[in-house]
Design a protein around this nucleic acid. Structure first.
Lengths: 172, 172
DNA sequence: CCATTTAGTTAGCCTATCTAGTTACTAGTT
DNA sequence: AACTAGTAACTAGATAGGCTAACTAAATGG
């Protein structure tokens, strides 16, 4: 967003509402299609959304060469460590993950994905990732830049929104 | 995406990977920030995400002057009609919604939001909606157009993705 | 006017979460 | 060496929100 501020004073935003509705509608569709897709994908793998997300996190970390601990997973997924224990039990039983005792600290455990899990996630996600890239590459570089800035600006907005303290109950 | 196809043959996509990573990262952040924001917002209203989504659907429909029936709500939220009955019980008890018997068809019910619910949603969402528009308007019209096309293209992709039939279990 | 369809609810079950408390270990301090 | 505090993960038990199947009541239409 380096050069965005300059645009604020430009004549754009006088009667520039032509695409505002289209963009807002795109956001709605994106959110919804994304949620539905994740649900279908989890169903197809015989697991719930949280478990699938956990699997993706573990696999991503493993590809990056980073060890993952249950505690981090809990934080990443916004669930308690107790729930994470159960989640790991499920994914261990289904053959997707396994626990590796930490060599030095014997309280600690690292979590790793099985070959089976790597293969399954790859089979299911790689074509979609490819198509995502294809879509991005259909846009001109300046357009890609704008899209990236937009997505990050929205993420920033969401990060600081939704924090209103609870209002009174109807019975107040 | 009317004029996108023409761009496919342009020189863009030879070594145009400069922003691809930024966009992919933006998508990740957007998804995540959105989910977290919705969770915080639901918590702040003392309800779960489904209930909040239901409330938003009812309010949006009401603003558009459209009546909402439990059956439609069930479809919109991808839950069963039985679960919808429970959801309506919860939101009726909390004073957000109420059931109105359909005058003609006595099997049927329409769902309406209370003034309290309208106020609460407005208080919590209107400033974010305004900020979303502000962000959109910081982009030039052609950029807005590209952003809209991108969002819709991604939504289309998600709509047709994640449908792989279940793979074999690890024990096959 | 009877058979079918439709809207919504009820009953009972299942699963993923939570909180609270436990176990095992590490680390820091005297 | 012996406390003390802190941390990682797990266990137990409760709860919430979803599901399917069965039910009630009303509308439809052949």
């Amino acid at each position: 967003m380096q050069d965005r501020k300059n645009l604020r004073d430009e004549p754009y935003w006088y009667e520039n509402r032509e695409y505002v509705h289209d963009v807002l509608d795109g956001i709605r569709r994106f959110r919804r299609a994304n949620a539905n897709m994740r649900k279908r994908m989890a169903d197809g793998m015989g697991m719930n959304k949280t478990d699938m997300q956990a699997l993706q996190v573990v696999i991503a970390a493993q590809r990056a060469g980073e060890p993952v601990h249950p505690r981090e997973l809990a934080h990443e997924l916004s669930i308690s460590t107790a729930s994470t224990t159960k989640l790991l039990d499920r994914l261990e039983k289904s053959g997707h993950l396994f626990r590796v005792p930490h060599p030095a600290d014997r309280r600690s455990v690292t979590v790793a994905a099985t070959d089976f899990a790597h293969r399954e996630v790859k089979d299911r996600l790689s074509s979609m990732h490819q198509e995502m890239e294809d879509i991005i590459l259909e846009f001109a570089p300046e357009e890609q830049k704008a899209i990236s800035q937009f997505l990050h600006a929205m993420a920033d907005l969401f990060d600081r929104s939704g924090n209103v303290e609870p209002l009174g109950d109807i019975n107040d």
